[in-house]
Design a binder for these strands. Structure first.
Length: 468
DNA sequence: GCATGATCATGC
DNA sequence: GCATGATCATGC
């Protein structure tokens, strides 16, 4: 290519990239894209690389801009409810080569050689437009803050450990904090060999979690509005070699065995135990104020970036959670148009959770223990059946099985008694709280139906999370 | 006593 | 008005 930029100068490369802001690929590359055989298919990143930067397509282990150590990454944006740009997806950083990585250390890994310094180009995705007409909104370079890098290294090592144990097929995005192993390839069906097991494993890629990418965006555009507290600052006071999770648990332990009343007293909180969410609120304050030593109003940066969801559980004396665990209601029209790989339920199942277990003892709630957890991959595959059945029932308009004399509905959705992990039940304010149906219900002719959601079975929580 | 359907309370 | 977290009601 001509001398649009100097490939030996990092500033030159970045400045050239910054000129993309506000433009589309068509505007930025002139006619060269069409004249080079662009067929309407392809990927935004490749087109940008070829036609704007003049780099031939490659799948090298080195960064795209080799001489200055910069790796070009493009990623779509969406507009969130507040009208701000946020990442539409996780940021994929390259396929995991199961056969090779077990010989690498993080510092010498091909992952780190390639991805230590990123040149990021974010464009606004619009399903009504040709990708040549997407507007490029955010451009910037990115290096990991040293505190994040420690965690990313831990994440990378955990992924490697699983491969070394012959468990590449059990990898899940929820295993790790910032750097995830996401499925990659046609509907997750791409199977690869792994070195220490004869079981073939779904192809996966290193990726930064969507929430982490949002923080990168806020950082690049200098638009961070939330005020965060950091666990890591507490960590340094304890023992810098401990992980975020170890520190959180260590800080919780002094409260084990204490009652909600005692904890409230320590926190200086009044308890309104008529409010259904008082325990969740108390837990939240406990985490921020007492355990992490930050202001209760602040969000915890690491939990945000790592997409960690806190769940408060009340156990009965026999260790069974008093209730099943609900998630957000699904939209009938949306769920039937999703692939499993991009489905909301898979997102729920691949997340990492922090469970806070309280137990009833002599009518008092006692903090028993806390546990970071994510669903094992094989269980996710099992729970997938519940999703598939649900989608099929909605597609067939076969939701209602019968209506009793009081108007109470019985559905064909997957039941708890037939499924070990998860089931489907209503999750609505009342029966008038509905979502539209894609096709009318065969039995009742109704075109909308009470909101439902996936629930995690309480006996699964007892056996697979609390007792394990 | 549990499974399943239905609804409540709060905060943003 | 809705998402979130949770509990209630009933019949088998």
């Amino acid at each position: 290519m001509d001398n649009k930029y100097n490939a030996n100068s990092i500033d030159s490369v970045i400045n050239y990239a910054l000129q993309l802001k506000g433009k589309t690929l068509r505007e930025a590359c002139g006619n060269s894209i069409e004249s080079h055989g662009y067929t309407g298919k392809g990927n935004f990143g490749q087109l940008l690389e070829n036609f704007y930067f003049g780099i031939e397509r490659n799948s090298r282990a080195e960064p795209d801009f080799l001489k200055v150590g910069l790796e070009l990454k493009t990623s779509p944006l969406k507009i969130n409810r507040k009208g701000e740009y946020s990442s539409k997806e996780r940021l994929v950083l390259g396929i995991i080569n199961y056969l090779k990585v077990h010989n690498e250390t993080f510092e010498t890994s091909s992952f780190w050689k390639k991805n230590a310094h990123l040149l990021l180009v974010f464009y606004l995705h619009d399903k009504h437009k040709d990708l040549l007409d997407y507007f490029i909104k955010i451009v910037g370079s990115w290096k990991y803050p040293s505190q994040d890098l420690l965690q990313i290294k831990r994440d990378w090592e955990l992924i490697n450990q699983k491969i070394k144990e012959g468990k590449a097929h059990e990898l899940s995005e929820g295993d790790t904090f910032y750097l995830g192993a996401c499925t990659k390839g046609s509907k997750g069906g791409n199977l690869r060999k792994q070195p220490f097991s004869h079981v073939q494993a779904p192809q996966r890629a290193y990726s930064l979690k969507q929430k982490y990418v949002n923080h990168i965006i806020a950082n690049i555009t200098d638009s961070e509005t939330e005020v965060y507290g950091k666990i890591i600052d507490e960590l340094a006071k304890v023992d810098a070699s401990m992980s975020i999770e170890e520190v959180v648990i260590l800080k919780f332990e002094p409260f084990y065995g204490k009652s909600v009343l005692e904890i409230a007293k320590i926190l200086g909180l009044k308890i309104n135990n008529k409010a259904k969410n008082y325990l969740a609120k108390l837990t939240n304050k406990l985490i921020t104020k007492s355990i992490l030593g930050i202001e209760a109003s602040k969000k915890i940066e690491e939990f945000e970036k790592g997409n960690i969801e806190v769940k408060t559980i009340r156990l009965r004396a026999d260790n069974l959670p008093k209730e099943n665990i609900s998630f957000r209601a699904f939209n009938y029209n949306r769920i039937i148009n999703e692939d499993w790989e991009e489905s909301g339920f898979k997102d729920i199942l691949e997340r990492r959770y922090l469970f806070i277990f309280y137990q009833f003892e002599n009518k008092q709630l006692i903090l028993k223990k806390v546990k970071f957890w994510n669903m094992p991959y094989l269980d996710i595959i099992e729970a997938k059946e519940v999703w598939e059945k649900t989608v099929q029932i909605i597609k067939q308009g076969n939701i209602v099985k019968r209506v009793d004399k009081n108007g109470k509905r019985f559905t064909n959705f997957p039941k708890k008694s037939n499924h070990r992990i998860s089931h489907v039940r209503p999750h609505a304010s009342n029966k008038y709280d509905t979502y539209p149906l894609p096709i009318a219900d065969v039995l009742t002719g109704e075109t909308k139906y009470m909101k439902h959601c996936f629930w995690l079975n309480n006996n699964y929580v007892k056996n697979e999370i609390y007792l394990k």
